[in-house]
Design a protein around this nucleic acid. Structure first.
Lengths: 256, 256
DNA sequence: GCATAAATTTCCACATTATGACAAATTGAC
DNA sequence: GTCAATTTGTCATAATGTGGAAATTTATGC
């Protein structure tokens, strides 16, 4: 399943195709991705695929493992990534806030962002006690609809967009206990009422989460800021307090 | 000055052009880069440039700052970068070694890699005492020829490639005290005799460096592993000891 | 070790795709 | 209000990218 919209080529077909391949490689496992996989999953002609891959390798956006005959992300990607994180952008904007919140609460914080049908972790601070999270680490992704960090974003999109994403992700929900499209729709509804998303032990036993949407253009959310913590740490009303703290931080950053 | 080779398009001109633009944006300052700069520095037609930028922004490889009308690296870059660092590749390969060396010596270590005419920091561990380094932080770059970390790589390239790079970087050397093409050539010669590159306070007063090349295909170096430390810490023969330690680590990793 | 299959890489005639000149509309700055 | 820069659009042109097929290399079975 190609993670990137194929059509809508505004006069740059080759670039669209390159991104499809980059995405497939980026989502590939630790063994890299082989040409065969890439042609199969991208739907591109073998020769075309190969030519694009060669160019990407030439620019070091990808790297080829000659022994395993597989492709992986290249050095230039790592460099660009480091600069993207350090340069202007959402990561830098929230850097100080993450550190501050971490110091204040001692819990695990993460900054999530939407990418196609996924919710991806852009940055995080690990809490005092290690808690398992859905995305694992920076760069990790889950299907939009899974976990409060992603629901907080999904809840604040256009309704048709929500529906489209939920349908597209339906099969992926199956690997989580008690999760399905209807459940996601209910979570969206309760999130909109509440103003933030929560989960108390439903996805990972004993682990709770609170997430607040970050709005970029008024009504639509493109990112979220959230906690992951132990259910044992919860007291009545504490989730709400957490949400308030997050909202304050977001408000401060949005103003500047 | 475009940082990326323009011609040699093996059937993917659009991709080559996209990388030129990505590079210009990645090298741009904290204020982002404007369309005008991009057209001027890339030599591309305005309309073409704009169309490519739009596509890149659409894929979130770049982001547009509507207020400042400038472009910067996008969220997808940050994500890919995080995965490039975590997934298979040179960074993962050297991750444990960097940590081990840091623990053993307490000094600042960095893993450098060649990218076009630059030497870029891919990973590092900061030492007990903070020392100023040429590249600053992960993702930082200097002209090939500046500093032992880059000389260690430059010294082990084909001679014509060396000459080409030295000539291309000549003006950039001017901003460093006593550095010029001839000086770089001498540093290369002494490095090849010694087997590793050193600098004792010549580039940054009071700061020394030792770097060892990492060979990927027999004779040509594509990366380097090095220390940055205080001159005050040096004792006779200690630089050589440092170099030996680095070589051992590299040998262990290359074998596996 | 050899035969066979599979995957990768190269080649090339063709037409789809990207190009760039031009112009108009839009936006922001001074 | 004027100007410069950005954005959107159109369109004829050909250069660019395409994909079928063949050649090559590598993997697999016997």
């Amino acid at each position: 399943m190609p993670q990137v919209k194929q059509s809508t080529s505004g006069g740059a077909q080759l670039l669209d195709r390159a991104v499809i391949l980059l995405d497939l490689v980026a989502n590939g496992g630790v063994n890299g991705v082989t040409l065969k996989d890439l042609t199969a999953n991208s739907g591109l002609n073998t020769a075309t695929c190969h030519r694009i891959l060669n160019t990407l390798v030439g620019h070091k956006l990808l790297a080829r493992d000659d022994k395993k005959r597989s492709y992986r992300l290249g050095a230039r990607m790592a460099i660009y990534g480091a600069r993207a994180a350090r340069g202007p952008g959402i990561i830098s904007s929230y850097d100080a806030a993450l550190t501050r919140i971490r110091r204040k609460t001692g819990d695990t914080i993460h900054l999530m962002v939407r990418l196609n049908h996924d919710s991806v972790c852009l940055d995080r601070r690990d809490g005092e006690c290690v808690v398992p999270t859905l995305t694992g680490s920076i760069g990790g992704a889950v299907a939009l609809g899974v976990g409060p960090g992603s629901i907080a974003m999904l809840a604040y999109l256009d309704e048709d967009e929500q529906e489209f994403i939920i349908r597209a992700n339906a099969e992926r929900y199956a690997s989580y206990r008690d999760l399905n499209p209807d459940k996601v729709r209910k979570l969206i509804a309760s999130t909109r009422e509440r103003g933030y998303a929560i989960d108390v032990g439903e996805l990972i036993p004993g682990i709770a989460g609170v997430s607040v949407p970050i709005f970029t253009d008024g009504t639509k959310a493109s990112a979220s800021l959230g906690f992951t913590l132990l259910c044992a740490k919860l007291t009545p009303g504490s989730l709400h307090q957490y949400a308030l703290m997050l909202k304050e931080e977001i408000a401060m950053i949005s103003d500047s």
